[in-house]
Simulated assay, not measured.
Amino acid sequence: MKLSNIPFAKISATGNDFILFDNRTQIFSGRESEYFRTICQRRTGVGADGVILLENSKRADFRMRYFNADGNEAEMCGNGARSVAFWAHYLGIVDEKMCFESQSALHRAEIKENWVRVQMPTPEAWNLNIRIGEEYGWEIGGFVRVGVPHYVLFVDDLEQVDVPTIGHSIRHDSAFVHGTNVDFVQLLSPQKLRLRTYERGVETETLSCGTGAIASAVIAYRKKNIRPPVEVQAPGGILWVDFDRDFKEVFLEGSVTLVFEGKLFIVPERD
């Protein structure tokens, strides 16, 4: 390892927290999986659900690359998208309205103080007939990909669900070739639901999941007649999901908090 001073920001998006690096000068190659995993550790590192690299883009204002807490790169993160949009504006890279790219899509975003609204990928790869988890006695919602895979179950009492244990079991079910995030949903009204999510890559329950909020809302729309805009109550705060009938326009919005800025003094050696 070599010593250096690498500036970073710690941002929380309704409890989903991230370490962000301005990587426009290519400090990181994206192959630093072990390092990202190390700094995401809660007691020995900065502590976060994931790492975000803000990079240059040839077709948008900037590019977002997202790495889960296990160090592996993922296609998308909803709350991460809101966080990087906020940070890009904070750094003066963009105005209140912007367009940025991720692995999964181009995203329009708008910021009003600490409130961020981001356009998300069109839901795809629907499978509402899959029956994983029936043994728990809950109603199956189904599977959908919102940049990343999600499996939704409807429960009567969210507080009674052992999310870490059951989520881990379903997340690794052989039916999901690349694994899946698992969303446990309790409907509260025609436009309101509660959500707890076991996140793939973090490998435990998180306080909030943006793509999970979208997956839960759109599946509830198709199976439970819930209406947009949908208020999603996560343990870390409230998110709002809005979409049109054909899911061509899907938006996620909620608050974002810049927790602190700092410097990391140890970086991995180059290959």
Rank of each mutant, 00 (worst) to 15 (best):
N5A: 10
I6Y: 04
S12G: 05
A13F: 01
D17A: 06
L20D: 02
R24M: 13
R31G: 11
E32W: 00
S33G: 08
Y35C: 02
F36D: 00
T38S: 14
C40A: 13
R42T: 11
R43I: 03
V46P: 00
D49M: 08
D49Y: 04
E55W: 06
E55F: 03
N56L: 11
R59N: 14
F67Q: 05
A69K: 03
D70H: 07
G71K: 12
N72W: 01
G80K: 01
V84W: 02
W87G: 05
A88Q: 02
H89V: 04
I93P: 00
E96T: 15
Q103D: 13
S104K: 11
L106T: 09
R108F: 15
E113M: 12
W115C: 08
V118W: 00
M120N: 10
W126R: 05
L128K: 11
N129H: 11
I130P: 00
R131C: 10
E134Q: 15
E135V: 10
E139P: 01
F143C: 08
G147V: 03
V148W: 05
V148K: 03
V148C: 10
Y151G: 06
V152N: 05
V152E: 11
V152R: 06
V155N: 08
V155M: 06
V163D: 09
T165R: 13
I166G: 01
I166Q: 09
S169N: 07
I170H: 02
S174W: 06
S174Q: 14
A175K: 13
N181S: 07
D183C: 14
Q186H: 00
Q186P: 06
L187H: 05
L187I: 15
L188E: 15
K192N: 12
L193S: 09
T197W: 10
E199L: 04
G201N: 07
G201K: 07
G201H: 03
E203D: 10
E205H: 13
T206P: 00
C209N: 00
T211G: 04
I214V: 15
A215N: 06
V218M: 09
R222Q: 15
K223C: 04
K224L: 13
N225H: 15
V230S: 06
A234N: 13
P235F: 07
G237S: 13
I238L: 12
V241H: 10
D242C: 11
F243N: 09
D244H: 00
D244V: 08
R245M: 12
D246T: 14
D246F: 12
E249I: 14
V250K: 05
E253P: 11
G254V: 02
G254L: 01
S255M: 04
V256W: 04
T257Y: 12
T257R: 14
E261N: 09
E261K: 10
G262T: 08
V267E: 08
